[in-house]
Nucleic acid binder design. Structure first.
Lengths: 189, 189
DNA sequence: ATCCCTTTGTACCGATCAGTACAAGTCAAT
DNA sequence: ATTGACTTGTACTGATCGGTACAAAGGGAT
């Protein structure tokens, strides 16, 4: 038998792709096995609690990514405008201009969200909070910053839905472009 | 045996609720049967092509609702501001301030969307087009109207995701409120 | 009351589901 | 080279999946 000495973490990209594509309930072990190249044995070896643990691992991997690429830069930067611009760039790339869905957002819509409800809420709360912090650092009032941050995160999610539904990356880019200029205008004043 | 002389249309609310809650692949015939009160026999009597036909029926029912309550008023009204305000009111009620998801948007995110891709795209395209038309009637330029309409539809979808994820109807209402004043401001000028 | 067509419940089909069990295989350390 | 812990494929379980078949049970028209 082949023993490529793999780790559970190696399966994360395939796992994430499968959950994104088919959802939690639609992602069967057969599909997961195909996407990760791991048999059931390995899957249950790395994730003894089954699909739920696999999804949890994917979610915490996503959290790690956002923490590094989005949240920390937004919080720690001395240049809020640059951090906000960076956020839009990273997001556009990450979501492939809307062709790649937001797993957290999609999971939140489904009935299988319950075990992950806290993670999902935390993801959005943290995103809104850090964006709000960056905007206030750019001399916006707390109320304005909070309001526009909430609207922006919603807009990003909606842009993904729209561009997937219309099969048009332009829709994502146009909507995100609007938010970009609006936020940058608001903090450069 | 009970013969309550029911029609296929009577099953639509239960069908829609089940698809909304569990998605297309997650909505098993057992769940559907429970939600509609119809046995498999009746279900396949009314929808011989199975789940796909049930979903198609739900989608066309949704289309009918939007046509009546949103699209026609937006297109035919002599008072664009009133029609836009009406749209936000109806939408807030329909989506229960974000606690009820948009079945069309959610379906567009899943892998089972292929058979319905055209319907999904048409739904969003029509919504954007009619809103654009109403805004141009309110003396906005075609470019501005089209841009803000696209952004608004995306924002509505995002507001649903956000308020579901945070389990907070306030998020939906705040975001939708912002769009409402922005659109009404834009056409009253 | 009889007829016919529609509706309904139930039993059943093969396929697939998530998850378990475990033997066979493979590496790192010794 | 042997050990021992880890990894992997395969076979299996009971449950459930979507869908089919069909007989029993209704209702409307006559």
């Amino acid at each position: 038998m082949s023993r490529t000495i793999s780790e559970g973490a190696d399966a994360l990209p395939g796992l994430a792709e499968t959950f994104r594509e088919y959802g939690f309930s639609g992602a069967s072990l057969t599909l997961i096995s195909k996407a990760t190249g791991l048999g059931k044995g390995s899957l249950y070896n790395f994730f003894p609690a089954g699909k739920k643990e696999m999804m949890a691992a994917v979610l915490s991997d996503i959290d790690r990514w956002f923490e590094q690429k989005i949240f920390v830069p937004l919080e720690r930067t001395a240049d809020p405008a640059a951090a906000v611009a960076n956020m839009f760039d990273e997001i556009t790339q990450y979501f492939r201009s809307g062709q790649r869905i937001c797993l957290v957002g999609a999971l939140g819509m489904s009935a299988s969200r319950e075990p992950f409800a806290e993670s999902i809420a935390a993801y959005f709360a943290r995103w809104i909070a850090t964006l709000t912090a960056a905007l206030t650092k750019g001399n916006m009032s707390k109320a304005d910053a909070s309001s526009i941050a909430e609207e922006t995160i919603a807009g990003i999610q909606g842009a993904i839905i729209l561009s997937r539904a219309l099969d048009d990356t332009g829709a994502f880019e146009r909507v995100i472009g609007q938010y970009r200029v609006r936020l940058l205008d608001a903090i450069s004043s």
